[in-house]
Structures are given as C-alpha cells and as structure tokens.
Amino acid sequence: MLELIDVEAHYGNIRALKGVNISLSEGEIVTLIGANGAGKTTTLMAVSGIVPASAGEILFMGKPIHELTPDRIASLGISQVPEGRHIFQRMSVMENLHMGAFTRRDRKEIKRDLEYVFELFPVLTERRHQQGGTLSGGEQQMLAISRALMARPKLLLLDEPSLGLAPKIVKQIFEIIRKINREHNTTVFIVEQNANLALQTADRGYVMENGSVVLSDECSKLISNDKVREAYLGI
C-alpha cells in the first residue's frame, strides 16, 4: 500500500536520503531502525510531504503522492505521530483530538472515535479539558497517538513512540499499537531507537544507515542477525 522507490531528500546541500526503497503491504506492522542521524525521521517526513522528495517516487495505494502538499497527503489517510509528539500546547486535549479529525466531516463517527480513544487511554478522559502543554510526557504521547487515530488513518506513521517514556508505559503503548493494527487492519510504520521492542512488535523491519536501507527482512530473522544484534540490540 506504501512504496518508496529510490527516494532521495535534501536539506540544503545535505543529502539525507540517498535512494531509499521501502514497501509496506496493507495490514502490516513494519519497523525502521537505525542510528541517530540515519534518516529515519526524514523518511517519514518525505512520506507526509513535509520534506519534499528530490528524486524517486512515493506511491500510496498505487498512486504517486510525492508531489502532493502535506494536507492532501493527510486527507488520503496517512497520519503521523511525529518525533517529539508536537501536541498543540495551548489547545485542550479535546481540541487536540478534534485537530486529528480535521479532514473529516462525519460528526457522528468522530464522536464514536472519541469514545474509542478515551477507551484506549482512560487517563485522557479525566484530562479532556486540560491544556495539551500541561500533560506529562507519557500523557502527551498517548494524546499524540489518539490524535493520529482520530483521522481514521489507513496508514499510521509513528516516529519513536517510546522516546523518554517509562518502560511500563512503553509496553502499554506498543500493546495498543498492536491492538489498533489487529482491530482496524491499520497499516503501521514505526521508527524506533528501541530496536528490541520494535522488532518484537513488527512483522518486518528495515535497517537504515547514512540515508540508505542496508538490510531488510522478517523481524524474527533480523533479531537473530549478528550484525543487527551487535549494532542495535547491544548483544
């Protein structure tokens, strides 16, 4: 459903992506791991249209999207939980969730989805009128994921959902990601530093180094791959 073909991206003169090839099938959970500065965030931003692809093609459900604006891409059903969460600080939890549903007009269904995310993350229910900026880090991550879900995405992009969270909350969040994937057949693409957890959660994985994909396989095989074990699992 998502295909990146020889995608390149630049920041000024810096070539951050050097011909990336990645493909995801519908209903899969796929992870992208790699060291700091490898180009993981850039890959997601290229898919969302924030960083334009300077070469190559990005196809979503068979159609090219690499020349569309970010708002058009979002309205096709691609939601991103960006690195660092990016909660709207001076909007309430409720307003943040409504921002997630910005491209939708089906009020009744939006209401149902609100109930759904409040069920997934009951803490948010109590905090619904609190300003986004006053939530704790873990709560903000839950809100960021909920906000992305409010778009009813076909493809959910997650950039380091475990960053800065206590192990217990990380586990809870990954369980919920699996649950969303199971219940709605949502395709999930997770960028992670926590390679161990990512490889346990996902079906397939890509390993990125210096702007290129250097390895890709089923997660069960990547976990036992010596190079991966040494570089990313620290074993």
Binding site: P70, D71, S75, S79, P82, M91, F102
Partner: peptide
Amino acid sequence: QDRKMAMLSGVD
C-alpha cells in the same frame, strides 16, 4: 502554535 503539526493534521 505548530505549523508543521497543523500541516500533518491536514490543514492547508
């Protein structure tokens, strides 16, 4: 508040 996030949410 956050232009990039607004774009990601589908705001033109």
